[in-house]
Structures are given as structure tokens and as C-alpha cells.
């Protein structure tokens, strides 16, 4: 759930490698992959858990900080170690760094 300054360097190195070999970044870098289907479904791979869950917002922990999904009637339709799926009427998606 936290990024240290020491990790920053290795992250850049990884990014360079990913760029050089043309690899998808989510497989090398420790970043979440989010797929949003219209405004009805969001799936987050590589998440770190739920920070806060209400009917109108879900805050998800990711390695770089947190993601807040806002909307109406939000339902977590599935949650496993690797994947989280949220359904409902999604209105906004905020990516917030750790410091916020």
C-alpha cells in the first residue's frame, strides 16, 4: 500500500525495460490494470483491497495510492486476490496518489 523512495528508481528501470521490449506495462510494473465497461462495470486487477465501501463510492487501495469510484447503487460483484469487479452506475473515477 505504500511507495518508498527507494522503489522509485527500480520502477523507472522496469519502465525502461518495458518500453524497450514493447511489453505491456502492467505485467512488469506493479500497477493496477483497470478495465471500465461503459459506465456499468469496472474491473481492477492487481488491487490491494478495499479502503471504504458505501453505496455511492468505493475506495480501492492500489500500489501507488488509491482509486475512488463514485456512482450509484455500487455493488462489488466479485472479489478475489487478483481481481475486483464493481457494478452499478459509475459516475467518476479518481486516481489519487498516496499523499492525498
Amino acid at each position: 500500500m505504500n511507495i518508498t523512495n527507494g522503489k522509485f528508481r527500480s520502477d523507472r528501470a522496469k519502465q525502461e525495460i518495458a518500453d524497450f521490449f514493447g511489453l505491456p506495462r502492467d505485467s512488469i510494473l506493479d500497477v493496477p490494470k483497470m478495465v471500465i465497461v461503459g459506465n456499468v462495470e469496472l474491473s481492477v486487477e492487481n488491487h490491494l483491497g478495499i479502503i471504504k465501501y458505501t453505496a455511492n463510492s468505493v475506495t480501492i487501495a492500489i500500489p501507488q495510492g488509491k482509486v475512488t469510484v463514485r456512482g450509484k447503487d455500487l455493488v462489488i460483484s466479485g472479489i478475489t486476490r487478483t481481481l475486483m469487479e464493481i457494478r452499478g452506475r459509475i459516475e467518476s473515477l479518481d486516481l489519487l496518489p498516496e499523499s492525498d
Partner: peptide, 18 residues
């Protein structure tokens, strides 16, 4: 939320949370 996090971390499958 803590319950949900611990549940999925210990391989308990949860779905259709509302």
C-alpha cells in the same frame, strides 16, 4: 471493509456485495 479484505486474502470467495 476489513472483513472483506481479510476474507478475500484468506481465499474466501465473496460476491454480489451490496
Amino acid at each position: 471493509e476489513d472483513f472483506i479484505n481479510q476474507a478475500y486474502a484468506s481465499e474466501i470467495e465473496l460476491w454480489n456485495l451490496a
